[in-house]
Design a protein around this nucleic acid. Structure first.
Lengths: 329, 329
DNA sequence: GAGTTTCTGAAGCGCTGCTACAGTAGAACT
DNA sequence: AGTTCTACTGTAGCAGCGCTTCAGAAACTC
C-alpha cells in the first residue's frame, strides 16, 4: 500500500469541503483532477474511500479514517513550518489575514503599516471576509488569521471553534452617535426615545445592542433605517436621518461632526479577537506578530485594553497567553 | 513555505542513513536525485538543512527538526495503513520479513506455508538478514518484521530497540550434540571435557554458551573448529570431528544420527522474538498474523513455550500482549 | 599525490498529473 | 413528466516535474 501524501491531501480537501467540486476549488484544481487523484488513491488502498451513490461525493468509513490521518499529517506540516520560522529568527513569507470591513480599515491597515517597518520580509495578504465562512477557510489553510468580532454581552461566537485558538485584540465599546444638527442637542439616551434610529440588521452585534438599550430605558426603538456597514450608517446619521449605535472603532476615521453622546456603558461592547489554528507547541510566529501589531494599534486608538493585558514580544513566540476558544472568563 | 511531503521523506532518509548516497540506496534512487530534492527543499524552506562542509552530508539543526517531523508523518502513514488493513478485514499485501538462517528454515518457512492456506492474499517476502543492520532496515520501513534471537542468559540484544516492539516467538534451549561414532558413547558433559569442539564464533550465542558450560564444569573447551551456520556445525559433528552446542531449533531438520546428549539446562537458552515498529494503536494486523503463525510453528516443534503464553487471534488485531523492548521480566 | 568516495550540476527524457472537453447521472424545479 | 442544473467520470493531449546518465569538484584515505 503506497499512500502518497499528496493524494491524502486531496482526500482531506474533500472531507473538509464535502464534495469534489468544492475540494477542487480549495486546491486550485479542476474537479477532474480531484476525481482522478481519488480514483488512484482508492486503487492504491484497495478499498472504496468515496461513496458515489449520491450526487455529492461523501466519504466511506475507510475514507473518513484516512482523512483523519491526512488531517494529522497536515498538522505536522504546520508544526514543521512553525518550528522552521522560529528557528530562522526572521519573520518571512506570506500570511493571509481575513477581517471584517471596519477592522480592515482601522486596525489591520495601520497594523500592517507598522509591521512593514519592523518586519519587512513579512508578506501580508488581506481578505475581507467574516463569519463562519472565514473560520472554515482558516481550517483548510487558505487563511492564517481571522480578525473576528463577537458581542461579549451576547452569546458565544457564530460557529464552532474546535481546534482554533483566539487572542483578544481589543474590546470595542459601543457609543451612540447623533446628528450635530439636531436641536435641542440630545444629552442623554432619554432624549432619543422618540427619535428615529439607523439600526443594524437584527442579527448583528449593533442591532442587539440597540435592543438592550431600548429595553433598559423602556422604549421601543423606531428603526427608520437599516444599514450593515458603518460608513453608510454614519453617512445617514451625518445627514440627520437618525441616531445610531456604533462601536468606537467605527468612529476612528469618522468626520468629527457626526459624534455626539459619550460612551454608553449599558450598551456593552464587542470583543475583537484574532483567531488562528491551534498548534500544541504554541502560536505561529507570523500570525503572532500580526496579532501583536493589532493589539498595539488598538491601544493607540484608545480602545479599552483587554482584560488580560498582553505584551507578547513580537518575534519570540515564547509567550503562551493564547486561550483556547470556548474558555469563558 | 510549501513543504512537499515527498521531499520530507527524502530528508528523513538522509537523517536515517547519515548521507545522501545511503539515502539514495534506501529510496531506490540515484544520489543525484536525492541531492536535487534536498536542494529544492532548502529553496522552499529558505534556510540550509544540510551541512555540506564535510564529505558526508549531515543535517543542520533546522534539518534535524524537519527530519523529526518527517518521521512523525511517516508514522502517521504507517498508522493509516494499519487502520485500513484492519478496516478491510482481509489480510492482504506485502510483508517483508527478515530472519536469521535457521529461523528461516525451521520457523519461517513452515509458518508461511500455513499462512498461505489461511491468508492467501498475504504476500510474504523473506530476507535472510540479522543483527543491527536488520533492525535499522526495520526502522526505515524496508522491513516489516525481524525474527531476532538473543541469548537470554547473556546481556540484552545487540542494538538499541527504541521505537520497536518485540513479541516472544519461542524459547530455544541449547543442547549438546556428539558424533554417533564416538566410543565410549558420552553420557554426560564430563565425558566431553577432553574432546574437541565445533564452536561458534566467540560473540555468538552458542559461543558464549560453550564458555558458560566450560566454566561450570571446570574445563577449558578445546575449540578445534569454528563454524557460524548450524548445518556446517552439524556436518562436522556428524563426521566425528567434535562435539557442539546448538539450539534445539537447529536440530529440527537434522539427520538423527548426529544427536546425542539430552538437553543441558545449564547452557541456558536463546529467545527468538519477532521485532516490529512500535505503533501506539497496537500491532499491525499483517505482521501480527506472521508472528502468530511463527508461534504456532514453535509450539508444534516442541520448543518450550514462552513464559507469557500467547494466543493472539490470527486476524483480529485486538490483543495487546506485545511488550515494549526493554521491559525485563 | 593517487585513489576513493561523496556530493553537485547539466542535459535529456519519460512519466505523472494536470486541463479541456464531452458525457453521464442525480437532484430540483415547473 | 420533462427540463435544467449541478456534480462527478472518462478520454485526449500536453506541460512540467523528477528521474537517470554523465561529468566534474571537493574531501578524506593511504
Amino acid at each position: 500500500m503506497e499512500l502518497d501524501p499528496r493524494r491524502l491531501r486531496v482526500l482531506r480537501a474533500v472531507a473538509l469541503r464535502g464534495g469534489m467540486a468544492d475540494a477542487a476549488q480549495l486546491l486550485h484544481l479542476t474537479p477532474s483532477a480531484v476525481s482522478q487523484q481519488l480514483a488512484q488513491l482508492e486503487r492504491e488502498v484497495g478499498q472504496p474511500l468515496i461513496d458515489r451513490s449520491r450526487r455529492k461525493a461523501a466519504l466511506t468509513p475507510a475514507g473518513q479514517v484516512l482523512a483523519a490521518r491526512a488531517e494529522r499529517i497536515e498538522h505536522e506540516l504546520a508544526e514543521a513550518r512553525r518550528e522552521l520560522t522560529e528557528l530562522s529568527g526572521r519573520l518571512t513569507g506570506p500570511v493571509t489575514i481575513a477581517a471584517f470591513s471596519s477592522a480592515v480599515c482601522h486596525l489591520l491597515v495601520p497594523a500592517l503599516l507598522e509591521l512593514a517597518k519592523t518586519h519587512p520580509d513579512l508578506e501580508p495578504r488581506v481578505v475581507e471576509l467574516e463569519g463562519p465562512h472565514a473560520l472554515s477557510e482558516l481550517r483548510t489553510g487558505a487563511l492564517d488569521l481571522v480578525v473576528s468580532e463577537y458581542d461579549i454581552d451576547g452569546q458565544v461566537p457564530t460557529a464552532s471553534l474546535y481546534g482554533l485558538a483566539s487572542d483578544p485584540v481589543a474590546d470595542d465599546e459601543y457609543c451612540i452617535v447623533t446628528p450635530t444638527g439636531w436641536s435641542p442637542q440630545p444629552r442623554s439616551i432619554r432624549d432619543l426615545t422618540a427619535r428615529p434610529w439607523v439600526a443594524g440588521p437584527p442579527e448583528t452585534a449593533c442591532g442587539r445592542a440597540l435592543d438592550r438599550i431600548a429595553a433598559e430605558y423602556g422604549f421601543t426603538a423606531r428603526r427608520a433605517h437599516t444599514c450593515l456597514e458603518f460608513p453608510t450608517v454614519l453617512a445617514l446619521v451625518a445627514a440627520g436621518l437618525g441616531a445610531a449605535i456604533v462601536p468606537m472603532l467605527a468612529l476612528a476615521g469618522a468626520p468629527p461632526d457626526a459624534v455626539a453622546l459619550p460612551s454608553v456603558p449599558v450598551a456593552g461592547h464587542r470583543r475583537i479577537t484574532g483567531v488562528r489554528r491551534e498548534l500544541p507547541s504554541g502560536p505561529e510566529p507570523l500570525t503572532n506578530a500580526v496579532v501583536t501589531a493589532l493589539q498595539g494599534v488598538a491601544v493607540g486608538l484608545g480602545l479599552m485594553p483587554v482584560t488580560t493585558p498582553h505584551n507578547r514580544p513580537a518575534a519570540s513566540g515564547k509567550s503562551r497567553r493564547t486561550r483556547r476558544v470556548g474558555d469563558r472568563e
